[in-house]
Design a protein around this nucleic acid. Sequence first.
DNA 1: ACCTGAACACCGTTCAAGT
DNA 2: ACCTGAACACCGTTCAAGT
Lengths: 206, 206
Amino acid sequence: MTPRDPNPRVARRSKDDVVDAALDLLDRVGLPDLSMRRLAEELGVQPSALYWHVASKQELLASVSSRILAAVILRASDPDDLEGAAVTLGRRLRDRLLAHRDGAEVVSSSLALGLVPSPLHEALRHVDGSPAAAVVADAITHYVVGVTFHEQQRRAADAWGAAASEVAVTPESALRPADDGFEAAMALIAGGIAPWRADTERVPGA
Amino acid sequence: MTPRDPNPRVARRSKDDVVDAALDLLDRVGLPDLSMRRLAEELGVQPSALYWHVASKQELLASVSSRILAAVILRASDPDDLEGAAVTLGRRLRDRLLAHRDGAEVVSSSLALGLVPSPLHEALRHVDGSPAAAVVADAITHYVVGVTFHEQQRRAADAWGAAASEVAVTPESALRPADDGFEAAMALIAGGIAPWRADTERVPGA
DNA sequence: ACCTGAACACCGTTCAAGT
DNA sequence: ACCTGAACACCGTTCAAGT
């Protein structure tokens, strides 16, 4: 008996429904095939109808990014353990990006456009208020997003066809596959925190 | 009197000319407006003519990326100074990316698609053959490309109009502007090399 | 060897008008 | 409040045919 919907047979969509459908379509067809027209078709609606719910495709993808990043939070954490928190969050971010097709690319551009908050920046600010937290959040976020983007593109290329083996770059000069390098890089960055602090926070005022 | 061009009045283009024009157009209009049709117009040619010189737009952008990255090399370097080489190369990469409009975005996808070699990986392999070099190259490359992409997008957004100030994310939860954070992050990552080595290269065989 | 002309199968977005 | 219909101004790519 809500006054909102006088005729329940007319299926009206909310913005959440549109974002749901977009994320679902992303997982099924990938970012290159995720068009407003295709999404509209999926929802049984004209393409122009989408523009009542979202201002642009970019804004829609930003909402999709928010959904993908929603689970990247720190439940409980030792304050003072910036290293531990950074590594945990880095792994969680990677997990979330890998959970959706082309997740890294979608999130990368939303982040770059400033349409979505950086989850590591927000979380690390709570465990450590020092300037170090922001620097660490930056380093880890860019590394994880970059490496996962690289990984997912490679996966898509491999899936599409191994026929491109001649144009592709030799393995030794390409960026490394992240599978084993990921933990190493995380350890490298996290391990840099202590010496960097010793160098930087030595001088309090001037 | 080269047999190649019987009539000098017919301006024939080489692939290099196409890539030149693409890089020039990129700097003038930016990646979103760099279309094959627009590029063809610039060259005084039909769009289909471009496909005699390049197989696809992606391949063209990979060639553009190669040009952008060509100057990211190490002239002379202390072997054993992985830290120093990494920081120098990171700064040089950032310089090259900033030298062209949307340089980071173009390079980012060419790198992800594996259509272009990673310059840091290649250069660092020469100063240090250990596994550390690859991990460091990965960490620095992804950080620099990511942070520069972010910076250039923000610049484009600001240039287009400050009217978007309401939709934009609050400054504190956005990724930091890289201007001062860049050197800090480079120091953080480079500073992680020594402790990481102490941890990892302790065990030689098993 | 290098390019034209014409087509194919798409895009994102706007906007008056409908219910 | 939510959506349709129709249009605008584009895309990347292919391919027979020309010179």
